[in-house]
Each structure stands twice: as C-alpha cells, then as structure tokens.
C-alpha cells in the first residue's frame, strides 16, 4: 500500500452547487505534492475534505492507514486568523499539542519542550515569548508550520503557505519542506505559482472542479491540460450551476 492519499468519486457540494465533482486519484507516499488550479477550483476544499473538516456529498477521500489526526498536520490560510489575539508564539505552537491532551488535562513540561524544538526547526526559537502581532508575515507563516511540526506528523498539509511572503522566507520554507520529505514525510501544498512547480514539487494534482490530472509534474502539466484547467470552456458549466444554485435557494422556480 504505497499510496498515502486516495480519493474515489469525490463530490463536494455547497448549497447544491458542485465545488468538486467526481474526483478520483491516488497519491504515493514520500512525495511533495502540489494542488493547483484557478481561483474557486476547489483546492482548499479538497484539503479540508481530506482532513474531514468538510463532509463530501458523495464519494470519499482518505489518508489510508494514517487516518488518526495525530499523524496529519494542517497549516491553514493566514487570512483566517485574528492576528491581534493575545497569545505568544509559544502559546500558538503549544496548541498543536492539544490534540494529545484530553478534555481536562493541562499542558506539561514535555509539551513545552516539544514546542521549543519545533520553533527551533523553523528558526524561531528566540521569538517564543513574542506576541503574534509583533511578528512579520514570514515569521507568522513559520510559526504555523512549527505548530504543525509539533504534532510529529507523517503528513503535512499547507494551504497557500507562500502567499504574501518575501522570496527569502519562501526559499527557507521550501528547504525545510524538502528536508522533511527526505525524512519520509508526505507533503501536500495548495500552490498558486505555476512557474515554481517543477522546481519545488515532484507530484501534482491539477483540478478545476473536475480532476484534470494527477501524477508527476512533467506528465500532468502539459499545454493541453493547462488549457483545460485555466481555459474558458467551463463558462457554460458555471452558468448552469449558478442557475442551479439560485433554484436551490428558491429565487427562481
């Protein structure tokens, strides 16, 4: 069983409008996989569905044997966080350990030690007591990766980790990810920059509501496939499903 992530006829609806439709693929272990597609293609949705945060309308997607959350770590998009919240960097990384703690358990010294180690891995050990609103964009991103690392995951899922970061931090992060991949982890990244695909990744899932391709980067990212994903032949589809959505809410009969 060499595959880490498998989807079968996955359909995800939002208000009767399909966001992901009939998606099936298999991704092997120990790869750095990019999830690419135009805006609104369902990339974040795919990620959230694989984490069981969103329930599919039909079909399935799962992480095979590593289905217990302790082995899968998730780094969400930066925008969904309130950066004014009164917590320090260490507090945020400690949150990654909450999954191991039962309802009334407190945080122990071992947890703090693990958190400091994770901060060390991303090069932020000296910032442990800083307030999160005093961190730069790149530091905030590294902090959330540390929170994922403290869960000692086998699989790492990141939603647009490179958006709004300077080049230097991006290089730093990519080196960290490659190191993790070489240590045997599987990494999935929702990515928006097609130019860096073959540099950073060795596997890609190309989607635009439907699966266009899943496989090694060079095989999937052909001219034809890119045209299918980013081209305009879905406009009638979108129009029809817009009508369907309006009908489902009762605005047309």
């Amino acid at each position: 069983m060499n595959c880490i992530l498998e989807a079968q006829d996955l359909c995800i609806h939002y208000n009767k409008t399909p966001i992901l439709w009939d998606v099936s693929f298999k991704v092997p272990k120990h790869h750095m996989t990019a999830i690419v597609g135009p805006n609104g293609a369902g990339k974040s949705t795919l990620l959230k569905a694989s984490l069981q945060i969103i329930k599919p309308f039909s079909g399935s997607i799962s992480f095979g044997r590593c289905n217990s959350d302790n082995h899968i770590a998730y780094v969400p998009q930066k925008e969904s966080i309130d950066w004014d919240f009164p917590v320090s960097a260490l507090d945020v990384v400690l949150m990654g350990r909450y999954g191991r703690l039962k309802y009334f358990q407190r945080v122990k010294a071992a947890d703090k030690e693990a958190a400091m180690q994770a901060l060390q891995q991303v090069g932020m050990a000296s910032y442990s007591s800083r307030q999160i609103n005093q961190l730069s964009g790149g530091q905030q991103q590294r902090l959330f990766i540390a929170r994922a690392l403290v869960q000692k995951p086998d699989v790492l899922l990141l939603d647009e980790p490179f958006s709004g970061i300077d080049m230097a931090t991006e290089k730093l992060l990519i080196e960290l990810f490659i190191k993790l991949k070489n240590e045997g982890k599987s990494i999935f990244i929702v990515h928006h920059d097609l130019t860096t695909l073959d540099q950073y990744f060795d596997w890609v899932i190309l989607i635009n509501t439907r699966l266009i391709g899943c496989g090694p980067v060079k095989e999937v990212m052909t001219q034809e496939n890119i045209q299918k994903a980013y081209g305009n032949n879905l406009s009638l589809f979108e129009e029809a499903h817009h009508l369907s959505k309006k009908q489902a809410e009762g605005y047309i009969s």
């Binding site: 945060i53 959350d69 969400p76 969904s80 966080i81 507090d91 949150m95 909450y98 999954g99 309802y103």
Partner: peptide, 18 residues
C-alpha cells in the same frame, strides 16, 4: 484550552475535533 482554541482558530479547532 478549548475556549482558547475555539476563539483563536475555529478551523484548527474543528480539525482537532473540538
């Protein structure tokens, strides 16, 4: 922990099954 997590990062909380 639960109040902290559900207030600060609801998506992560859902992921942690809280």
């Amino acid at each position: 922990k639960e109040y902290l997590l559900t207030t600060f990062d609801p998506v992560f909380a859902k992921f942690m099954k809280i």
